[in-house]
Design a protein around this nucleic acid. Structure first.
Length: 118
DNA sequence: ATTCTGACAGCAA
DNA sequence: TTTGCTGCCAGAA
């Protein structure tokens, strides 16, 4: 059996799907960084790919909380990629986050590391 | 096949 | 201290 029956096969889907899976696993009220996801995927150097994968997140039919993914500084670097420049901020604030100057306050407190949690 | 891009991160000045 | 450049990998043209 080359295929796993108890677990999905993100590998077959490609690097992108892996990012989607991890992003979907981000619990409500939590945020993570691109580097954390890339690192969890085993490609700590492909941080840039993570953001790019999320760029195609709209391709996924499931809801991908891409707004919960920010850069290591807690800055909403990808806010511009949402519907509007304020969409990402609105979503974060809607989850109880406090966004100031495109930056998530207490980002470190809300940080969710897949590599540590998973 | 090659070239370029890309929602970052780390290091240098 | 802040600002800027390079590196990194994987996918798209």
């Amino acid at each position: 059996m080359t295929r796993k029956s108890s677990a999905p096969a993100p590998d077959s889907e490609g690097f992108f799907s892996r990012v989607y899976e991890v992003t979907k696993l981000i619990p409500y009220g939590r945020i993570t960084s691109y580097g954390a996801i890339a690192r969890y995927l085993g490609s700590g150097g492909s941080v840039r790919m993570v953001g790019w994968a999320l760029n195609s997140s709209h391709h996924g039919q499931g809801f991908i909380p891409a707004h919960r993914v920010v850069n290591r500084n807690g800055l909403l670097t990808g806010k511009h990629h949402f519907g509007t420049s304020s969409t990402m901020q609105q979503l974060l604030e809607n989850e109880g986050f406090t966004v100031e100057d495109d930056r998530v306050l207490e980002f470190r407190q809300r940080f969710w590391d897949p590599s540590a949690e998973l």
